[in-house]
């Protein structure tokens, strides 16, 4: 059985959606960790959910990234545990230095809440192996600071290393993100940060299930479900 832990901060608000998604897809309720915890339960997958941790004060994810629990997340990531950050979780992972680059204010300055198209830029990773390369999927976004930025050197590195997981497709880039980047891996490939919310498209009641395969991949459940 794959064990999932979801990290909660004051101001997390997509944690409930993430708990529901993991429970429905894996059949097991995830463990929860609070921002003041100094260790995590034994986990195969650690998820930092969306929201507005610490009110997005200073910079989105900046204060969450310095919380005690993030030291434990960094240690788990260094050991190869899979880590997923969605939306505010992605911002937190970049602020914590677990992923390169930064997420800046959307180029049109407005909060965007809508569905976008994503193309799968690398499917040789457990998180994305359930998708075809260049497959275009639907996914909702809801954020104010999703404009991914990295300096030229870093950008060249992540492009050459295959660290881009998802790009906004078909002209749906909602925030001005450089190279249409919607989600990136760390160099080792076990940490994924993405602005879109795959947890909100996992069952027919959501209007689609395009997000489901990401969690199945991350939890090694792809073969069991498709068999």
């Amino acid at each position: 059985m794959q064990r999932t832990t979801i990290v909660q901060f004051p101001g997390s608000n997509r944690d409930r959606d993430m708990i529901a998604a993991i429970t429905k897809i894996s059949g097991n309720a995830p463990s929860l960790a609070w921002h003041t915890d100094t260790s995590l339960p034994d986990s195969d997958l650690v998820i930092i959910p969306g929201g507005f941790s610490h009110g997005d004060y200073l910079r989105s994810g900046a204060i969450a990234a310095r919380a005690p629990v993030m030291k434990a997340v960094a240690e788990a990531a260094a050991k190869g545990v899979r880590v997923l950050g969605v939306c505010n979780g992605f911002q937190t992972l970049t602020e914590a230095g677990l992923l390169p680059g930064a997420l800046m204010r959307n180029n049109r300055l407005t909060f965007v809440c809508k569905e976008v198209k994503l193309s799968v830029a690398n499917n040789k990773n457990p998180f994305t192996e359930g998708y075809g390369l260049d497959e275009v999927i639907r996914c909702p976004v809801a954020h104010h600071d999703g404009n991914y930025f990295a300096d030229t050197e870093t950008l060249t590195q992540i492009e050459n290393n295959g660290q881009v997981a998802f790009r906004y497709a078909e002209g749906t880039n909602p925030n001005g993100s450089i190279n249409d980047i919607a989600g990136i891996f760390n160099e080792a490939g076990n940490v994924l940060g993405m602005m879109p919310h795959p947890e909100n498209l996992i069952e027919p009641a959501h209007g689609g299930i395009d997000g489901r395969r990401l969690f199945q991949g991350a939890l090694n459940l792809l073969e069991t479900e498709t068999a």
């Binding site: 910079r59 900046a62 930025f149 990295a150």
Partner: peptide, 9 residues
């Protein structure tokens, strides 16, 4: 370095 600025940007 540790908090007030994000030196990436």
């Amino acid at each position: 370095e540790k908090l007030l600025a994000n030196t990436v940007i």
